[in-house]
């Protein structure tokens, strides 16, 4: 029973039995020093201290503050007595305490990395038998690259070690998400890149209750919004017919190109708003907008639309003017003098 209490006390103090011993020793030494320097201290306080060493730790802890209040009259009575050394105690004093590092890989060249590697290995031993998701269906995650890890940890991680480690990471990541333990998720979190490009998924375009799908397209500085509904091939751009909106036949063809390339011209109606830029930009912004809205109606058309060049946004813009040139590229006219 007593041993149990001692253990609990030790746990409360946050130290092991050996550490408690050491603590007491230091305490005693501290008090001894005080006795040596100050005049008002008494032997009874030392004896009290000696007595309390066998008593509970809480008593010994409050002793330094309570001493004067409790034993004020006794110290005044014993003030003339000569100072004597404290009697020998039964406690063995430890002179050196060797700090043990928390991490077992403290003395290796790459302790943090090794630690996480060991953790992963341990997790693998524990949960390696859990069922995994088929390779194609695993959630895509961007892992930290070797360079990232070297940078963040500041350790010279070997490429081969990294390869082994990342293999473990991927294997653990493939554990079926419903069965994946919390510990695995936490351990893998350290290996994930801060910015996840795969989580940046555009909001899917939906066909609303009126049957409209809204697609947005851009080209140069033009922005087009196209509402596509099932219909008979009527097109209105900014409230005008296609012929009124685009004088050039080429532009009209570009605007309805997604419908034409998939031979859906007579299946859908388009109502669009375009702003900014010139006619070509507006027409080609419409291409993208209509294509996106069309994909909301028929997702299977995506490959066909990609082949028709309607899926990717054209990133080209006006090239900036440079100093020393008349325009972006044009050089000034050569003059003799």
């Amino acid at each position: 029973m007593a041993a149990l209490r001692q253990n609990i006390t030790g746990a409360l103090r946050g130290s092991c039995p050996g550490a408690r011993l050491q603590w007491q020793t230091l305490d005693q030494q501290f008090h001894a020093l005080r006795l040596g320097s100050g005049s008002g201290s008494s032997s009874s306080s030392i004896t009290a201290a000696a007595r309390s060493s066998s008593a509970s730790a809480s008593t010994s802890r409050c002793m330094s503050t309570d001493t004067h209040n409790d034993n004020s009259d006794s110290s005044s009575q014993t003030g003339f007595r000569s100072i004597t050394a404290a009697p020998e105690t039964a406690i063995r004093i430890v002179s050196h305490a060797r700090p043990v590092p928390v991490s077992p890989s403290y003395f290796s060249r790459q302790p943090i990395f090794n630690d996480s590697y060991l953790t992963l290995q341990k997790l693998m031993r524990s949960y390696g038998n859990l069922p995994v998701v088929p390779a194609g269906q695993v959630e895509r995650v961007a892992w930290n690259t070797l360079e990232d890890i070297r940078q963040t940890l500041g350790e010279q991680v070997k490429a081969s070690d990294y390869a082994k480690c990342i293999e473990l990471v991927k294997r653990l990541h493939a554990i079926h998400p419903t069965l994946k333990p919390e510990a695995v998720t936490e351990a893998l979190q350290a290996f994930k890149r801060n910015v996840q490009p795969f989580s940046n998924v555009p909001n899917p375009i939906v066909v609303d209750k009126f049957g409209r799908a809204l697609g947005v397209g851009r080209r140069k500085v033009s922005v087009a919004r196209a509402w596509v509904v099932e219909g008979t091939g009527e097109v209105q751009v900014n409230g005008k017919s296609l012929a009124d909106a685009f004088g050039r036949v080429h532009d009209r063809e570009s605007a309805v190109w997604p419908l034409r390339a998939t031979s859906r011209v007579d299946k859908y109606n388009v109502w669009a708003l375009v702003e900014g830029g010139g006619t070509t930009g507006q027409a080609e912004a419409l291409t993208l907008a209509i294509a996106k809205a069309l994909m909301a109606h028929e997702p299977a058309l995506k490959p066909a639309l990609r082949r028709a060049g309607c899926v990717t946004r054209d990133p080209r813009r006006v090239e900036r003017k440079k100093h020393g040139r008349v325009k972006a590229r044009k050089m000034p006219t050569w003059v003799k003098r």
């Binding site: 008979t232 091939g233 009527e234 097109v235 017919s241 296609l242 012929a243 009124d244 036949v249 009209r252 063809e253 309805v256 419908l259 034409r260 031979s263 011209v265 007579d266």
Partner: peptide
């Protein structure tokens, strides 16, 4: 397909525009 395409390109069946297209 061809008819509806030209009909659309011609601004919803404007004859002259269909002719142009």
């Amino acid at each position: 397909t061809a008819v509806s395409e030209k009909w659309t390109l011609g601004g919803n069946g404007v004859v002259g525009e269909m002719e142009r297209a």
